[in-house]
Amino acid sequence: MSNHLKPEVSSHDHVQGSAKASIEIVEYGDYQCPSCGVAFPVLKEIQEKFGQQIRFVFRNFPLSESHEFAMPAAVASEAAALQDKFWEMHDIIFENQNLLSNEGLFKMASGIGLDIEQFKEDIQNPQLEQKVESDFESGIRSGVNGTPSFFVNGTKFDGDAQDLMDMLTENSSIE
């Protein structure tokens, strides 16, 4: 089965870190998935530990039939992106995963200082849901079989965030 990221990371993606970074990590994640919640602080740790070497990309892979707030949360993060606050929203959702609800998402949106009227309007824009779905489809095409799934420099990584940390740590000690 496929293990290559399709399509490659582009300007349509949400990216943290420099394009010159030597390690590009792409996560396909679901905001309501408990394992993604577990991965979140570990990924932060990876970014901190390896600094400039890491470029991190998040793509949506909501399992909407299992997680009722996965799609609303993904759309909310895309709405936040329209106000240049994607990562603030991404972080606050994972930090408060147990509070996920429609009301909770509004509270988080105010919490990070979004213009709420604008946010309300944007989350109803069908284009945002389409963007999330195109992320999902790219995941399927890339061989994503559950969340979180990680790609390192375009190749599927067989393991969780902690395995990723261990692999990076091991490789850096060899150099």
């Binding site: 089965m1 496929s2 399927i140 095409r141 890339s142 061989g143 994503v144 079989n145 559950g146």
Partner: peptide
């Protein structure tokens, strides 16, 4: 597929 591996859906598509 190997029993322990979830083959995903890309092959089907």
């Amino acid at each position: 597929s190997q029993v322990s591996v979830n083959p995903g859906a890309d092959g089907i598509l």
